[in-house]
């Protein structure tokens, strides 16, 4: 038998409210993700793609279904149990850093609570920061003192400093200018080559996902309507909604 996938999401559902006010955000989600794979999740606002990341990272409990990490079930665990496996990177990364702490202090928090020793903490932080192409002295600034692109790269560095098995990216480039966005993609691409990073990449931008994802999943109203390689999705879309989305992508030429 082949090795179990890194992440398996089986029949996961999420609903808010009770009784008449019950509102289903996610229905019957099934995803498997192998080590080293990058999965893009594409959908418009309100389709539940961010909620899905929160469920996988245990920030919110699931309403139904099961979650597996390397074949072992972890449904119902707490963030502190899974934070060695997953790290989440959010869209608004300035708000994802405590405004009263420098970037370095925030990163220390991650290391302190995750790694066995904090001996080389500063070294590890600086290595990670420079791997994201930033000057190490920027780590001693407060989040508001950096530009959007810089903070976002710091957020990725923070996510990776504890060397999780997988990072979950929630619209990490949508608040940025295109040149900053492209820089982030380049660094993520480098990291993939160097470390075989596994990623889930939530975005509303199909063209962007198609450039570096191994597979893409299209979500609509809490369900995955189509999943496939970029070639399948971009060149031979099956579902009506995929075609609609594809039609709305505006290329420059």
């Amino acid at each position: 038998m082949s090795e179990a996938p890194l992440l398996e999401v089986r029949n996961v559902a999420k609903a808010y409210g009770r009784g008449k006010r019950r509102h289903e955000v996610l229905k019957n989600i099934n995803i498997t993700l192998n080590e080293g794979e990058v999965l893009g999740i594409i959908g418009e606002s309100g389709c539940g793609k961010s909620v899905l990341l929160n469920l996988i990272s245990c920030l919110e409990p699931v309403s139904g279904g099961q979650l597996f990490f390397k074949g072992q079930e972890y449904t119902g665990k707490k963030p502190k149990d899974v934070c060695r496996w997953f790290q989440v990177i959010f869209q608004d990364s300035e708000a994802a850093f405590d405004p009263k702490m420098t970037i370095r202090e925030s990163m220390h928090e991650n290391l302190k609570l995750l790694a066995e020793g904090t001996k080389n903490a500063n070294q590890r932080i600086e290595d990670m920061v420079s791997m994201m192409g930033l000057a190490t002295e920027l780590a001693d600034r407060y989040p508001r003192q950096l530009s959007g692109g810089q903070v976002q790269r710091m957020a990725i560095a923070r996510g990776l400093v504890t060397e999780p098995n997988m990072i979950l990216c929630d619209e990490i480039t949508s608040a940025l200018d295109v040149s900053a966005q492209a820089m982030i993609l380049q660094y993520l691409y480098e990291l993939r080559k160097k470390r075989g990073l596994t990623m889930m990449f939530v975005s509303h931008d199909m063209a962007l996902c198609a450039t570096f994802c191994d597979r893409m999943a299209i979500m609509k109203d809490g369900e995955i309507v189509e999943i496939g390689t970029p070639e399948q999705i971009m060149d031979h879309p099956q579902h009506e909604y995929t075609k609609l989305l594809l039609d709305a992508v505006l290329y420059t030429r």
């Binding site: 990272s57 963030p79 934070c83 959010f90 869209q91 850093f97 405004p99 009263k100 928090e109 995750l114």
Partner: peptide, 26 residues
């Protein structure tokens, strides 16, 4: 509800740590 609380939760901190170190100072 701010994103940074979620990122701190993803570092595995306990609630008391979050309240004292991240909610209170802000």
């Amino acid at each position: 509800r701010l994103p940074y609380i979620n990122s701190v939760r993803m570092t595995g901190c306990g609630d008391i740590h979050i309240l004292w170190k991240h909610v209170f100072p802000n």
